[in-house]
Simulated assay, not measured.
Amino acid sequence: MNICQKKVVIFGGTGFIGTHLLRNLTAQPNLKVLWTKRPTTPLPDIPNLPAPRQFENLETVSIDWISDADVIIDLASSGRGRAISQRDVLSRVSPHLRIIDGLLNVGSKAHYIFLSSGGAIYGNDDSVLLSETARCIPQTEYGLEKLIIESALLCAAETTLTTSILRVSNAYGIGQTNKPGFGVIPTLVKSLEDGEVFKIFGSAHAKRDYVNVLDILRAIDATIKTGGAGIVNIATGKGTSIAQLIALLEELTGRTVNVEHCEPLQNEPNFARLDISRAKNVLGWEPQVSLREGLAQLLKKTTLL
């Protein structure tokens, strides 16, 4: 390895954000990228992509293999799990805690970057604008998973590890999976393409903060360069309702969404705007891709434009 290169290890490199991140980081000559994937997961189509280490899950990742990493980027998660009838928080968090404990036990001085959830971790709060110091009372198992791992990393930061926790709001962009619990935008675009019914659970005026994957990549780049950033909200600070999102897509495509109104889902957190002042001050980061621009880029990859 070139002495000037940083060794970067990525967990969760075949997911939506992970694939974009692999493409971005492997193109940077100052970084030596190592990444993991499950044996059954197909390789992403990325030029000059280094061969991955294949592990069934984080429980089987070798601590020796990552002990000399300069940067570790943890994107791995079991997903939102809305269709699962029984809670199992332990299985969601223990693989991450094993990695953190293992790194501490060997005295690793890595910079551990964890992608948390700005949409799920705060829960319901009456505040209009949420900063990183707001209380966190997650309403879902997914949010609780993120909060527990955050707490472990904050404790680890008191020893040898350097930590950065990026609380990313609702991510969207090219390549996002269309399946329940993985984003309203791909589901809405698919409904437009196929003419299928788009189900609105609860109010069409419920708002979310949609941040483009390209802006998320820029935030990760800034975090690698900055070093330990602590907890940082990565969002736009703006809310868009389902009704506004539908209207924008209809305007861009000239098509009409076939809508069905349904009862609200349980444990859905209320919307509160995320304060991104700290991201601006600590990382020198702020979003650059508007929702209109991001949707237009996404639509060009479909039959709608």
Rank of each mutant, 00 (worst) to 15 (best):
L104I: 11
V9P: 01
W35C: 02
G107M: 06
A69Q: 06
R292V: 11
G12A: 12
E193Y: 07
I3G: 07
C4M: 13
K225Y: 05
G228Q: 05
D88S: 12
D68H: 11
P138C: 04
Q54D: 08
E286D: 11
A83K: 11
L217Q: 06
L265A: 13
V89A: 07
E59R: 10
T163E: 08
M1H: 13
D125L: 12
A206W: 01
R92I: 00
I137H: 13
Q266G: 15
I276R: 00
D70K: 11
A83G: 05
N270G: 13
L130Q: 00
H261D: 07
M1P: 09
L154Q: 15
L58H: 09
I121Q: 10
T140W: 02
T253V: 06
T36P: 04
N212T: 01
A219D: 00
G12I: 07
R87S: 12
E193I: 08
S277V: 03
I73D: 01
N270E: 11
S85G: 02
N48Y: 08
D209C: 00
L49V: 12
I149A: 01
L43Y: 08
I121K: 00
S67P: 06
P180I: 10
A110R: 05
G143R: 01
F201R: 09
N267Q: 14
W35K: 03
F114S: 04
Q5G: 06
P39R: 11
G239S: 09
A110Q: 06
V128S: 15
I72P: 01
D126V: 12
A272S: 15
A222P: 04
V211E: 01
A279G: 14
E145R: 01
A51R: 13
I148A: 00
G227W: 06
D88A: 11
